[in-house]
Amino acid sequence: MNIITRLEEAILIAIWRLEDNAYGVTINKQVSKSLKKKYSMGALYFALDQLLRKDYVTKNVKCFYHEKGGRSRTYYSLTKKGKKALHEVKAYQKSLWEGISELAFDVKDSK
């Protein structure tokens, strides 16, 4: 299994969730929300490019001429490989937690 970082994992999930609307700004918002932490834009784009190099995501540049203030946006989507990686991460985490019941692990008790 390929190791991906927590940020990369969050980005992959964010792209999956956002479906057709996954570009820099939205991904950043989604990731910050789910990880409850603000990432710098640089960290985000770096992670995105890493995923790109690993072939987990593809990108598609769209230019808008009149709508949205004449901006261009790079939309990201998951590749098959990316989806598989996400599944693997999920299965791996599941196997990590296997056998530990929710009750045995009480946050309040351990304090």
């Binding site: 570009y23 820099g24 700004v25 950043n28 834009m41 540049v61 261009s72």
Partner: peptide
């Protein structure tokens, strides 16, 4: 070069 426009756009959008 290839990312410049969209990243700048993302920045200015936020």
């Amino acid at each position: 070069d290839e990312d410049r426009l969209s990243i700048l756009s993302d920045f200015s959008e936020t």
